[in-house]
């Protein structure tokens, strides 16, 4: 499960960090990106241009988009799932982030932790995108994040983590057109734990209404 993440960068920061992609103007730092919100993603349409997608994949065949909002897709089984199999073959994207939150369950309570790369650089999450056609013929583009089993750093907090794709895989992931899902399996390897860091954060992040720098500050037990 990956249900919240951050992208604490502006358009200028993003352009400097991902020189191979083109970004829309006006991007502001976000500390609590939640499902249902627009997220910045680079789709595999051959243009290497980031655009906003709604987080919560609505399958093309959904009659009612209010019922189907998949925020995650399990990478290991996405090739078999009706909601994801076409997207995995044909509509992949990179969702840009610089950190994500996971919650540790302790009895009845849940403690949030924040995860980043050790070098604090922004990174790319593996995503799937889909087009849903509205009754008036207009299209809505939505996306979901792929998840995999947790690495050694995430595992004490949560059993799953998002798929983080290293830069050398981006070109293959973003190739337009059809790809055999079997060839993608090596990508589901959890990102190396030694390249990541985590710290405990305040439960303030639980509330999707809060979006401020203090959410990612470390708290002590």
């Amino acid at each position: 499960m990956c249900g919240r993440f951050t992208l604490t960068l502006t358009t200028e920061d993003l352009q400097a960090a991902f020189h191979q992609f083109v970004f829309p103007g006006g991007v502001q730092p976000r500390y609590n990106i939640a499902p249902g919100q627009p997220v910045l993603a680079v789709p595999n349409d051959g243009r290497f241009t980031a655009a906003h997608f709604l987080w919560g994949l609505v399958p093309s065949w959904a009659k009612d988009p209010r019922r189907y909002r998949f925020i995650n897709a399990r990478a290991e089984t996405a090739a078999q799932k009706p909601a994801f199999r076409a997207a995995l073959r044909r509509r992949r994207c990179l969702v840009l982030a610089d950190g994500f939150y996971e919650w540790q369950r302790l009895g009845d309570s849940r403690r949030p932790f924040y995860f980043t790369l050790k070098n604090r650089q922004p990174f790319a999450l593996a995503g799937l995108w889909e087009i849903w056609m509205g009754p008036d013929g207009s299209e809505i583009t939505t996306c979901a994040l792929l998840t995999t089993r947790a690495n050694a750093l995430v595992a004490p907090v949560h059993a799953r983590m998002p798929v983080i794709l290293p830069p050398e895989t981006w070109e293959a992931w973003l190739q337009p057109g059809e790809v055999d899902p079997a060839t993608m399996e090596p990508l589901w390897r959890p990102y190396p734990a030694e390249a990541m860091q985590r710290w405990r954060v305040s439960p303030a992040v639980n509330n999707p209404r809060v979006d401020a720098p203090h959410l990612i500050e470390a708290v002590t037990a």
């Binding site: 006006g26 249902g36 209010r66 207009s138």
Partner: peptide, 20 residues
Amino acid sequence: QAQAVWQAVADLPVEILLNP
């Protein structure tokens, strides 16, 4: 024109509700 309308607010921290 749902897509065009939500894209117009994509820079704001808002949630989108789709009403087909």
